[in-house]
Design a protein around this nucleic acid. Structure first.
Lengths: 345, 345
DNA sequence: AATTAGCACTCGAAGACAAAGAGTGCTAAC
DNA sequence: GTTAGCACTCTTTGTCTTCGAGTGCTAATT
């Protein structure tokens, strides 16, 4: 069976109606919305063909039809139009928002996620600038309690990340101070991924015979600061997930909730987004069971061509792709601009 | 009408059954559970009296009865027994957990909340040690971008709090460093609430004619770091709220969700808990509409008699008060011990 | 050959109705 | 003071029916 233009046009109408209403679409509805005045009987025949081709699905005999995930893929690739999905006014509003913010990174990312969520009426995710892709501004080791110290790392994107490490008892406050100063001087401006504490350990400074602290710090940086632990993910607008008409049972809500609780998994997903441009993953394409009824759209923000972090939306397969893609593009472009400003100073 | 011992004993049975099942309790059920073998008819008469006294409520004629909020108050004050609400084994497990943790404050509080949530099967809250009640360990101002700097404050409880402030353009990196050092030296070990930046501004150091930075830092400390902004609250175990049998509509879930979203309000509530010992607030006693069907139990943790922060549970009025109170006591006692250790070093 | 009107058919949603069951209040007996 | 007994109330549950949206097929139309 061949997918004629008319079939695809009909499918497009069905998809867009379904995105709107979340309810199966009947032939009469399509007939009314379809530009050329085709009768519902004709539409029925075409719809029957589309079903045979695996693009439409009938929940039960006497219901309308629902687009399959394959249909959404075709829609996203070939059928939808991005023009006008986000109005010029909205664009301008977003741009001006990024003009006049004061530079608190964590907050900026949070607001970006909120913004996306507000524009799309869906839950939004943001991955803050990744440490291993930014440079070190300062490293400070602060004694907290006997045997433990706090490592505070400040990055070029004004992110602060902290972690408690154990230190040998024979290392005093003064030593920690000296190490902090030394490491900051040595690694300032370098990529955090490149920090190789070992190199310092072998240096001439003899005030510290014990290299345990260095090893602890290295471990701290590697394991604690660079491994995805879910702290790099911001989630906003989860409440939107409660309004999906297709979710009526509490179990649906629960599974959504557990989804958003698994921050590590989300972080991994959003980190994967760094390797692509705008990326749309529809339902089972995700390959993961927990996402089989959801689609994910992500967009990275970049500095000098290098992806630093990402923003994204996670929503039912019947999301409004055009609007979501455009919203993410706008936000990620703005973020890229702001970040470039930060990094270059 | 007088509340005889027997009436109260019957009420106790009803309350405890209701805590268990969340369903109206009938006279036959009580008759079976009641120690002395009273018939259901007798119980019915007593229940009728209790209803007249405003302690029981009948959802509709042919249903059992539900305890009123007033009944719960009497139960908490006079009827319930705390003994055995938490087993010795559990106690021991909790204690040993606090024995062997490594000192990351944020994490410790998070785990405490998780612990409470696990013990009580309810959502749990924790208020991290309040800045204005701890002392300063280090204050560092780090330039981020032209015109903005990051103030990082580390407290004696190993908390890190950061905030971006504006700085005048003529203040250089070197100045910020000097100010950091000066302020740390000057205020180290002092209560953060006592930091009066003005006192420094007037000092002899002439390298900085501009006192704007000082003012900005002061403002930063006062407004941004001390005002409740919701960042001091940790919430764990919200998923428990999805399992309440009395919540069946999605709207119930939604309202629960919005409740937990309003972190500032929760923070204010938990801050209020600092002024009391274990505190039980039942339903409308809260005075706030959003809590009229929920009870809140809070317990502060203290260092040298001074409340630093608090832990709490928020759940339907029919919560298991004895178990929740005991759980909070155990955790707060352990937290007090750990905190005392921190502060004294 | 494509389109359409017409009609029988399917299936779920919604409403009506009856039966079951849990619980009460009252009365009279113990 | 307690309790057995009973009529009464009200929700829950299941069954049946009706209604309507939608389909698929056939025959007529363009």
């Amino acid at each position: 069976m061949e997918a004629t233009d008319r079939k695809l046009a009909i499918m497009k109408v069905i998809i867009e109606d379904y995105i709107d209403t979340a309810a199966p679409v009947g032939s009469r509805t399509v007939s009314k919305k379809f530009e050329d005045g085709l009768s519902s009987a004709t539409i029925r025949n075409e719809m029957s063909d589309l079903e045979e081709m695996g693009l439409l699905v009938q929940p039960h005999t006497s219901a309308g039809r629902v687009p399959s995930q394959a249909a959404f893929r075709i829609y996203v690739n070939e059928l939808m139009s991005l023009n006008g999905a986000v109005s010029e006014d909205e664009r301008a509003a977003v741009n001006s928002f990024y003009m006049c913010h004061i530079g608190d990174m964590e907050n900026l990312m949070k607001q970006s996620a909120s913004l996306i969520s507000a524009m799309t009426k869906q839950p939004a995710l943001a991955l803050v600038p990744q440490l291993r892709r930014t440079t070190l501004k300062r490293l400070q080791i602060i004694p907290v309690i006997k045997g433990a110290a706090l490592v505070v790392i400040v990055t070029s994107t004004a992110r602060v990340k902290q972690k408690v490490i154990r230190v040998p008892d024979n290392v005093g406050d003064h030593d920690l101070n000296a190490i902090s100063r030394m490491m900051t001087e040595r690694f300032q401006g370098q990529s955090i991924a490149d920090i190789d504490v070992g190199r310092i350990g072998t240096s001439q400074d003899s005030f510290l015979m014990d290299t345990d602290v260095f090893r602890a710090i290295e471990e701290c940086i590697n394991d604690a600061l660079l491994l995805p632990d879910g702290s790099d993910i911001l989630i906003e607008g989860v409440r939107n997930a409660f309004n999906y008409p297709e979710n009526e049972s509490i179990d649906d809500i629960k599974s959504f909730w557990t989804l958003f609780q698994d921050r590590v998994r989300l972080q991994r997903m959003m980190t994967d987004a760094l390797r692509h441009d705008v990326k749309v993953t529809i339902g089972e394409e995700n390959g993961e069971d927990w996402l089989k009824n959801l689609s994910v759209v992500t967009a990275p923000y970049k500095v000098h061509g290098r992806s630093l972090g990402s923003v994204g939306v996670i929503a039912p397969v019947r999301m409004d792709y055009a609007r979501i893609i455009e919203s993410l593009k706008i936000v990620s472009e703005n973020l890229s601009k702001v970040m470039t400003l930060y990094i270059s100073e």
